[in-house]
Design a binder for these strands. Structure first.
Length: 299
DNA sequence: CGCAGGTCCTGCACGC
DNA sequence: TGCGTGCAGGACCTGC
């Protein structure tokens, strides 16, 4: 599932292979991938024709490619199953190809392909506006409500701590709330909680400054580690990379490991098994010893 | 048939 | 009353 590290790998690939390229043609094979482009298919195609792409940017799981003197951008959201591929036109269309941008750089012709099996993702066009907190930074208007991510140099843990004290929710819901902090999905939320030794039902207002710092630092570290392991596998013809193409799954401590031993307990000679619980309509993985259920848990 | 889950939308409760 | 806000849960999708 694409969370922040996977999206960043894609951003780097696009940066390397498509920056300053010009869009020669646009083909929309499935209009459902333009659901978030309110002005429709014809507008999408017309706006992009002939545009020169600039350096791709990212916040959390949102990726965008500015064009048009930097006032507009193509917004890419991968959703659950989206991929952005750079491909030579001679490579056959993959299954679930939704949108094709044919681009040129000098005399080289390539395709930027948006592929998405489940259509939770999509492309759309948006204008760039100044960020509320730092006006010199431009963001798509539809991304201004997304919080800074833990890899952002201006990520502010103290501000998050203050907001958490006012919330009446639990820590996992907060980690997944993209308006508070972005980029963290179900996998990295569970990994961060395990590393910080916090249970997902912990009420947000009871978290100490130290615990908040621990869990967001853990999120940053686990995502940097994932990035370092997933960012090694692309070349000119196959830039992609959704989570599966990296090798990060070998480094997950809890996610998907229910019924298997907890590594931390194992080191201390205890035989504890990772548990899986249904929570917020999805799975949560945790070690019952390292992450005990809080006295006043909040579902 | 259940499961995978990111984001959007709706509805509810609450406070002013 | 009405509005804004915070929170929770379902809908959207397809393939295995």
């Amino acid at each position: 599932m694409p969370e922040l590290p996977e999206v960043e790998v894609v951003r780097r690939g696009i940066h390397r292979w498509a920056t300053y390229a010009t869009i020669r043609s646009v083909e929309v094979l499935d209009e459902r991938s333009l659901r978030r482009h309110k002005r429709g298919r014809a507008d999408f195609m017309g706006q992009l024709q002939g545009q020169r792409l600039e350096e791709p940017q990212r916040r959390g799981k949102y990726l965008w490619i500015p064009y048009g003197e930097g006032y507009c951008a193509i917004i890419v959201h991968l959703g659950m199953s989206g991929q952005m591929l750079i491909a030579d036109p001679s490579i056959p269309d993959p299954k679930h190809l939704k949108i094709r941008l044919t681009i040129t750089s000098g005399d080289r012709i390539q395709e930027l392909r948006f592929v998405d099996q489940r259509i939770f993702g999509g492309l759309y066009l948006d204008e760039l506006v100044p960020a509320d907190d730092r006006p010199e930074q431009l963001l798509p208007a539809t991304v201004t409500h997304i919080g800074r991510d833990p890899l952002d140099e201006h990520f502010d843990t103290e501000q998050i701590f203050r907001k958490l004290r006012k919330r009446r929710s639990n820590i996992k819901r907060a980690l997944l709330d993209q308006s508070l902090s972005s980029g963290i999905g179900n996998i990295y939320a569970d990994e961060a909680l395990f590393r910080a030794r916090l249970h997902f039902t912990r009420p947000t207002e009871t978290l100490t400054r130290n615990e908040v710092s621990r869990v967001y630092t853990a999120a940053e570290q686990v995502m940097r580690l994932a990035l370092s392991q997933g960012g090694t596998s692309f070349d000119a013809l196959y830039v992609n990379v959704n989570g599966e193409s990296g090798h990060f799954d070998r480094s997950l401590y809890v996610y998907g490991r229910h019924g298997k031993p907890c590594y931390r307990c194992q080191e201390q000679g205890r035989e504890t098994v990772i548990e899986r619980t249904k929570f917020m309509n999805r799975s949560s993985y945790f070690c019952p010893v390292c992450q005990p259920v809080p006295r006043r848990a909040r579902a």
